[in-house]
């Protein structure tokens, strides 16, 4: 293939990525993938952060004070977007794969988006109402 010779493998990948027509489900797939990668990185950070418990009460509470600062609260809220979308869309995937969801996966996706917005808004209230 001439295309293979003229451009690098990565450029071809980018080309396909951007030219590929994205339907409703494609966006769900993209969002699910990126939120999943983000959440995996987060759980590693989370496990490290909780080793602070081993350093005793004073050190742990100092660490918690840092995590209660506005920047971290906002990051926590942003994390909530990833968590909520990934969890609810995950239920959609289970319905499609193991249930009868393939017949109405687009309708479920609208429900997923709406529920994510509602839950993230509710989370924002819970996080920032205490500040």
């Amino acid at each position: 293939m001439s295309l293979q010779n003229s451009t690098s493998k990565f450029n071809r990948w980018l080309d396909v990525m951007f030219r590929y027509r994205k339907h409703t489900g494609s966006w769900a797939w993209i969002l699910h993938r990126f939120t999943g990668i983000g959440l995996t990185l987060y759980i590693l950070v989370h496990i490290i952060a909780l080793t602070g418990l081993l350093k005793g009460e004073a050190a742990f509470n100092e660490e918690m004070k840092l995590f209660s600062s506005p920047v971290f609260l906002f990051a926590e809220w942003f994390l909530g977007i990833l968590v909520m979308f990934h969890a609810i869309n995950g239920i959609r995937i289970v319905l499609v794969d193991l249930g009868n969801g393939a017949r109405y996966h687009k309708q479920i996706l609208v429900f997923v988006y709406i529920l994510t917005v509602i839950l993230v808004a509710g989370m924002g209230y819970l996080i920032f109402a205490h500040v």
Binding site: L53, E57, F60, N61, M64, S68, V83, A87, G90, I91, I93, V94, M123, L126, I127, H130
Partner: peptide, 27 residues
């Protein structure tokens, strides 16, 4: 594992975010 995580996650969020004063302290 995804289904199980959603179940545990609901509890985790109620504990850690709906009631922050009971969830986060060292005690």
């Amino acid at each position: 594992t995804g289904i199980l995580l959603v179940v545990v996650l609901i509890g985790h969020y109620i504990l850690m975010h709906a009631t922050p004063e009971s969830g986060h302290t060292y005690k």
